[in-house]
Write a protein that binds this DNA or RNA. Structure first.
Length: 383
RNA sequence: GCCCGCGGUACUUUCUC
């Protein structure tokens, strides 16, 4: 039990994921038998770090040691599969649960519904929802919100409000997440006034909007190139004592960059640091794109260097953006150099990477090389 | 037999076409 707590906090740190396996071994060498809780925590930590196969292996191990996985264990592993996009295996897990007469519960269904929602597969979402109800699960706020979010993602806002009615009738009160999802759905459909009304409604119901809430509006405004309104919103937040967060700035920087307002984007980029916020990967990636689009390739590279200086690890998007920019600027040599560097930084090329390269090669008439690259991609089983 | 404690799910921003 004590170890479970330690493991739990270990996982929250997010670092040294593989250490959990060491700790697990240490427990066993001390003659302690990890219980379901212990295993489940470990599976969660591994899953969150994307080590799904390791998580899977751990599940097998616990079975071999005579420790029966329960609903929570199954659901945890299922979530890991979902996050990794390995839906078939997640579904198979559901079947396995049913076979081993371990009843899936509300959370189990929710996990799957959430994933299908993100994929925009409303059909499967509804089917799973029915299965859930047929299984005797009473949906809670989480479940309803997940369903609402799925519908909003698919642009079906009316239906989402229908679900809102249903949940209220069943005595389940919407919470901040529920309202946020609905506001996001409304703004996605450009229903600004309705979204603003809902903002009032949620306050009345005791849900104070957070930066998440406001960020939906920022996103709407900048994508509509309504920068003044975005600025007004910023002032409004200030009055209410809600601080914009990194994402708020990111959204606005991206919007300005997209509109070709490089100078203003750069100003915001500086301003966020003045208010004590550190740019994250996404901020840097956006600034790189912003300069790239404006044809300021060297500026983009400058940002890239600054990013590393500030201890931000370049990711796949960073690499792809730079590749794209360099290629389009006709600086193919540098692009190829980057391609090698990327892999040395532990970032693996994705389909997008190859698309950029194949595209670039094709345009410059190097059809042969492009075909070779495609073969290489297939051979590597590129994600 | 009962009670309590430890594990799972939901909201916002970036790359090619």
């Amino acid at each position: 039990k004590c170890y479970s707590v330690i493991l739990g906090s270990c996982g929250k740190n997010g670092k040294d994921t593989m250490k959990v396996l060491e700790i697990l071994e240490e427990m066993q060498s001390l003659g302690l038998r990890p219980n379901v809780y212990t295993f489940t925590i470990c599976i969660k930590i591994l899953g969150r770090a994307g080590k799904v196969d390791e998580a899977c292996a751990l599940m097998r191990q616990m079975k071999e040691e005579g420790c029966k996985p329960d609903v929570v264990t199954f659901t945890t592993l299922m979530n890991a599969f979902c996050k990794a996009g390995r839906l078939d295996e997640a579904r198979e897990l559901l079947n396995e649960m049913r076979r081993s007469k371990c009843r899936p519960d509300c959370v189990t269904y929710n996990t799957l519904i959430h994933k299908y929602g993100h994929l925009g597969d409303v059909g499967t979402v509804c089917k799973l929802w029915e299965e859930m109800e047929a299984d005797g699960c009473e949906p809670d706020v989480f479940a309803f919100t997940t369903l609402i979010h799925a519908l909003c993602t698919a642009g079906k806002v009316e239906e989402a409000f229908g679900v809102l009615d249903k949940m209220v009738k069943k005595g389940v009160s919407p919470n901040l997440y529920t309202y946020n999802s609905l506001i996001g759905g409304l703004l996605k459909r450009k229903r600004l006034e309705k979204a603003q009304n809902l903002l009032q409604v949620m306050r009345v119901h005791g849900c104070e909007p957070t930066s998440f809430t406001y960020n939906f509006f920022f996103d709407y405004y900048v994508k509509e190139a309504q920068f003044n309104e975005a600025y007004q919103l910023f002032l409004q937040m200030k009055r209410k004592g809600i601080a914009p967060d990194v994402v708020s700035f990111n959204i606005c920087i991206e919007g300005l960059g997209e509109a070709g307002k490089v100078r203003e984007a750069k100003d915001l980029f500086e301003e966020m640091r003045l208010v004590g916020l550190s740019p994250d990967n996404i901020t840097y990636n956006m600034m790189i794109r912003c300069y790239g689009k404006a044809g300021k390739v060297d500026k983009a590279i400058e940002i890239f260097l600054e990013m590393m200086e500030n201890g931000c690890n370049p990711d796949e998007t960073t690499a792809n953006s730079l590749l794209d920019i360099l290629y389009k600027a006709g600086r193919a040599d540098e692009a190829w150099k980057m391609f090698d560097e990327i892999q040395q930084m532990g970032v693996s090329p994705s389909v997008v990477t190859y698309n950029i390269l194949v595209n670039g090669l094709g345009k410059s008439g190097n059809i042969k090389e492009a075909v070779e690259l495609l073969d290489e991609m297939k051979a590597k089983g590129c994600p």
